[in-house]
Structure formats: C-alpha cells, structure tokens
C-alpha cells in the first residue's frame, strides 16, 4: 500500500509532539508542576501514531494508562491535554481525571483507563453498539502486554469473535508489566498466539516501525469494517522510562535500555523519510522546532489556566 506524503508527515509530527509532550511532562513533574503520577510512552511513539492513523475521524478508540500518544494521534488538543495533566479547569476532564483519564468522546476517544485491562470490555461493547446500529464505524482497543493476563482480555476477545465485532485489538508489548517481564508470565512465544484460542487472526510485528504498524492495522481495520471480525495485533516495543514516577529500573539493565534507544522509532522514521527523499533534514528540523513550540504554548496555556473552583468538587457525579 502506498501511503501519501501527507500521512507520513502527519505521523512524524504526532510522534514528535508525543515525544516532546512527554519530555516536558517529565520535566514539569520534576519541578512539581505536575503531581500524582504519569506514565510515559517515550520509545513507543510508533505504536500510537501507526494504528490510530488507520482510523477515520469518527471511529472510536480505547487507550491505556500510557496513552498520551494515542490521544495526540486521534487529534487531541495539546493545550487541553497539558491543562488536564496540570489539574486545570480547562483540561479535558476539567482537572478531575489527570494523565490516566484523558478522554474525549467527540474525538472518538473512549478514554484511558487506570485499571489494567479495564478498557478492553468497554471497547468491545462500543464495537457491539457499532454493529447493532450498523454505523460502519470501528473500534481500536489498546492494551499492554500485562493486560493480556487479565480475565477481561480473554472474555472480550472471545465475545468479539463469537459476535464478529468491528474491533481491532492492539497489544503494546513493551516487555514489562511494571517490573514483570512478559516472558516470565506468558507461556506462549507471542501474545498474538493467544488469538488462535478465539479463532481470531493474531499478528506480531515490529512496534517501532510506524509504517508497518499503520499498514497492518489498516488491513485489520478494513477487515473489521467489512464485517469480517476482529484481529489481534501485537507490536513489539520498549518504554525507555520507568513504569511510572517511582520506578528505579531495578528489573532491567542499562545495556538493555541503551540497546532499545538505538531502535528509536522516531529516528528510524526520520532516516527513512530522508533516504526516500520525502523530507529534507532541514524540513525535519523545522518540524521539530514547530512541535517544540506547540508544547511550549501548551505549557503556557496550562499555566495560565485556572484551577477548578471548589464549587466543582461535587459536580458531574451524575448526568442529568
């Protein structure tokens, strides 16, 4: 499949925005301007930009606690995201959700989830609704390697298969569920092998290759849209940072981390774009600079935004 230049540029920009957004979040966290916790996906950017760009604007996705990149790829406003992380009233959830609950149904984003595997049945139900209402829309469901050991994963894949739901499951296999290596807690070679138990196609691919992530997801999306059922795609990737803010990286070696940094999905994609003469080095530099500016503007917007008023404390408990 031949991808347009426009799409490739868009994917690179989203990956850069994600990288800079999260580096900034890391910095703001250290300064105490962002509190609580936050889960960074630095090193995994292709796993968001690739699959999400295979969706149409009105398709849905459910994401994980490490979901900043998917939000950005689905068209989230960076200012509003940053405001949410800073706990501001102007944030996506009016400051009530924080980093792990960024959602926007208007953009088809069913939300990140603080419970590992918690979003899988929700995405499956959203897909059931698409099928029942015959909308032609599909659902993309992200989860991590760790979540594939939750009951909800198995219950949901089974359900999606028997009902042939329009859903694509994308497993972001970054090798570790917090500190636990997936090899120690999963008996099959690949997580995608588990799809066969549900008579579902399962594919394992290089999660640091944004083009491959796009293409494989796109094929699965086309299949789902045709009513030919769900697919499980596993992307192999790696998170450079710790699980969350308290991680001392005791469970993996510096060498392993450095080895994966050499496989940076952004650098790899940039090299491809230059080699294929799709972008010049100068154009890339310009995009990097403008992306950095976007993040700076987002910080400014978030910093200038007010905190929620205490009057909002008990608001939005129930819908009326």
């Amino acid at each position: 499949m031949k991808l347009s230049k426009k799409l490739k540029l868009r994917m690179l920009e989203q990956m850069l925005l994600t990288r800079y957004f999260e580096e900034k979040v890391d910095e703001l966290f250290a300064k105490g301007l962002i509190h609580g916790t936050t889960h960074l996906s630095i090193g995994e950017e292709a796993m968001a930009a690739g699959p999400v760009n295979a969706l149409k604007a009105d398709d849905f996705m459910a994401i994980t606690h490490r979901g900043h990149g998917s939000c950005i790829a689905k068209g989230a406003d960076i200012n509003i995201m940053m405001a949410e992380l800073m706990g501001k009233e102007t944030g996506y959830c009016k400051g009530k959700g924080g980093s792990i609950h960024v959602a926007n149904l208007e953009e088809g984003n069913l939300g990140a989830n603080g419970i590992v595997g918690g979003g899988i049945p929700i995405a499956t139900g959203a897909a059931l609704a698409q099928k029942m209402q015959n909308t032609g829309k599909i659902v993309l469901c992200f989860f991590g390697d760790g979540a594939s050991n939750e009951g909800t994963f198995h219950e949901s894949l089974n359900m999606a298969s028997i009902w042939q739901l329009p859903i694509v499951y994308v497993c972001v296999n970054n090798m570790y569920g917090m500190s636990t290596c997936i090899d120690d807690v999963c008996p099959t070679n690949n997580i995608s092998d588990r799809a066969s138990a549900y008579q579902m196609e399962g594919i394992t691919i290089d999660g640091n290759d944004v083009l491959e992530m796009f293409e494989v997801t796109n094929n699965a999306v086309i299949k789902a849209r045709k009513g030919q059922g769900p697919t499980l795609i596993e992307g192999l990737t790696y998170r450079w940072k710790g699980h969350s803010k308290s991680d001392a990286n005791l469970y993996r070696t510096r060498e392993e981390i450095e080895e994966w940094k050499k496989k940076c999905p952004i650098k790899r994609f940039q090299t491809y774009l230059i080699e294929q003469k799709i972008m010049s080095e100068e154009e890339i530099k310009k995009m990097e600079e403008s992306s950095l500016e976007t993040i700076e503007r987002a910080v400014e917007f978030a910093e200038q935004s007010p905190y929620p008023s205490l009057d909002a404390l008990e608001e939005d408990l129930y819908a009326y």
């Binding site: 459910a62 049945p121 139900g125 609704a129 029942m132 219950e155 949901s156 089974n158």
Partner: peptide, 15 residues
C-alpha cells in the same frame, strides 16, 4: 466482567 463492561462501552456510545 465482559457482559457489564460491554454494557458500559455500548452505553457510552449511545445505547
């Protein structure tokens, strides 16, 4: 879990 979860997801998108 998937029955209720699917209910939650379907409800979020208008059912």
């Amino acid at each position: 879990a998937a029955i209720v979860g699917a209910g939650v997801g379907a409800a979020m998108v208008g059912m």
